[in-house]
Design a protein around this nucleic acid. Structure first.
Lengths: 350, 350
DNA sequence: CAGCGTTTGTAAAACGTTTTAATGAAGACA
DNA sequence: TGTCTTCATTAAAACGTTTTACAAACGCTG
């Protein structure tokens, strides 16, 4: 009954025109009062401000974005939010981006390069100001064109796309591998298993490289038979661990490429009734909240996530704000070895 | 060197005008060909399509959003990405939203109601089509106005805002509490400690309510002295657990309100050298990947995260697509008890 | 008071779309 | 043949801003 508008939302959103009318100035003046207060007398500025407050005016981002060509919009794409490293990264990036008055478009590629490309294409519509990308995997031929089509600065984080000249922020993965390798060698391990996420992502390759270096430097021969490369699904890490730890001459220590692999390894050890570190020492890259609540608390090579987030955002906004000067910059951040109780001397018999 | 444009991005993004020109039709026809193919002859449709492909045209979301009043933009705000429950939720929601051709603006309130309000206000500019909100805490006076100012449908998830008539998707938290309580009572526990996140979030209150019901139904008296309410920071859960488990008549079982609390409890038990479940049984709400890799694997009341995500998105798009019919709908999803090894009979002496 | 730079304000164009209303062409009908 | 429909196409207005270019008013200087 009645002639009330069926529309659920009573009053339309106030526009700048109405603000201007209420303040008895032109639209141009209203706009100036808000954006370049210098161009307008103090009196009018206040009048406009009052009108804004009274009406609860908020600028229409789409209209602004159309006119300027800046949408105050930044995109972040990660492979997988279930990986605590990326969850932390997203949380930190969101905070920093918000502080600058920007909003964050979030995409998850699900570790699937094709999905990644599809997402990037949808993204084109939004005319984002910049993109922070943790790529799903190795560089695809289409990457180049797709990213260029964005026409916005790109910062790569965590993983790189080979031969791609954009800014990048990464863990010093080689050093991370070295830290882990040296730690195990120093403890006296000589037969060491490695389970890697995927060597098709740059981070994995480099971690392995550093790890091998450390072993060689410690006079340990690296046995290719003790290395496994699982995809990015943890169940496969579990299988690999079962197989590696089930053999008669099982390794005395395992190096896991990242925390999701570690998850599989720990499940496998529980399954096989192996004790840590008494039977097998375990170390991995990627700290995460649960690492210190495990029994035993896990020895980890930690990534400085807040610093990585800060560096990515800083690099990105540097470009956004038009500092075209430098060519691409690569920002390597140092890992930190956190020794807890999952690593110890190898068992006597071994 | 020479007279190349200094601008880093060579060609400007193609516009619909240029598509139209290339296809030798008017802009209107080009637009129609893309949006309402029925209104245009097949021949022209194809010509336009070819031009689009050739130029790599992508519509300008801001311009579209200005003209229609639909931006293909949905916002999701969660309290904290470090909580694996929310990480999973975001991942699932992103996928579903993307499938519908929308993009996701992500915000994290950091469990801070004031930040939440600030975020919501920034959000107003974007004229989003809808919002999925997991509120940081209890309802604030400003919530009502702030959400209304969004002028977009809102779906609450995980937590509700009391007395707020919007669609909501939640775990049946009371049942979750009951499940946990009944499980412990059935095992024979009588002195049971409870550590809750915060009773100012609806989920916490309801879990506690159900838990008590189960105890009472099992003829167990609930001892208020064994209940602790910690904020949302895990360190406080740790302190509470240390205190509760340090007393001479320590409880034989602990019920943790959610996984971050559980984290504190497990650290405390390690600290105190208590074995699980031999000394103390532990159960919590919120499954997470690491729960089954712990020693022992943890008994958990799991939330059906994918279903919750699907329900929220479905409810939201139902509104977005204009089904105003119903009044608010509340969608309670059932929890599932996953019995692993962290719960057992109480120790003999107790 | 003429000339001139400086403020302060505004009208109007522009951004890239969608949509409404108008145009014209081609058949159908008498 | 003229009129009436239908259909495909388009010109132009609109969405809510920012910005450019100009006008008016003011304060100086000589």
């Amino acid at each position: 009954m009645g002639d009330e508008p069926k529309n659920r939302f009573e009053k339309p959103v106030p526009t700048l025109r109405e603000v201007a009318r209420l303040a008895a100035v032109s639209v141009a003046t209203a706009s100036n009062a808000l954006n370049s207060p210098g161009r307008v007398s103090e009196e009018l500025r206040q009048r406009v401000q009052r009108a804004v407050d009274q009406l609860g005016y908020v600028p229409h981002a789409a209209a602004q974005s159309l006119r300027r060509s800046r949408g105050k919009l930044v995109a972040l794409m990660v492979p997988n939010l279930r990986n605590p490293f990326f969850a932390d990264l997203v949380e930190a990036v969101e905070r920093l981006v918000f502080e600058r008055g920007y909003s964050l478009l979030l995409y998850s590629s699900g570790e699937d390069v094709e999905a990644e490309i599809r997402h990037l294409n949808l993204l084109r519509s939004y005319r984002i100001d910049g993109l922070i990308l943790a790529p799903a995997g190795r560089r695809e031929p289409s990457h180049s064109a797709t990213l260029a089509a964005l026409k916005a600065p790109v910062v790569l984080v965590d993983r790189t796309l080979d031969g791609f000249d954009v800014d990048a922020v990464q863990l010093d993965n080689q050093m991370a591998g070295q830290l882990a390798g040296k730690h195990l060698v120093d403890l006296g391990h000589r037969r060491i298993g490695v389970i890697l996420g995927s060597s098709s992502v740059s981070a994995g390759r480099e971690r392995l490289l550093g790890f091998k270096e450390a072993l060689v430097a410690g006079g340990v021969v690296v046995d290719p038979g003790l290395m496994r490369e699982v995809g990015l699904r943890d169940s496969r890490a579990y299988d690999a661990a079962i197989e590696l730890l089930g053999r008669p001459d099982r390794p005395t220590a395992i190096f896991a490429g990242h925390s999701l692999v570690l998850l599989g390894v720990m499940r496998a050890m529980a399954e096989l009734g192996l004790r840590c570190p008494d039977d097998v020492s375990v170390i991995a890259v990627d700290d995460f909240p649960w690492a210190q609540a495990m029994q035993p608390p896990l020895t980890i090579v930690a990534q400085p996530v807040p610093e990585m987030a800060a560096a990515s955002v800083a690099l990105l906004f540097d470009r956004i704000e038009g500092n075209e000067a430098a060519r691409e910059r690569r920002n390597l951040l140092p890992p930190r070895l956190i020794v807890r109780d999952s690593t110890g001397k190898p068992p006597k018999g071994a």
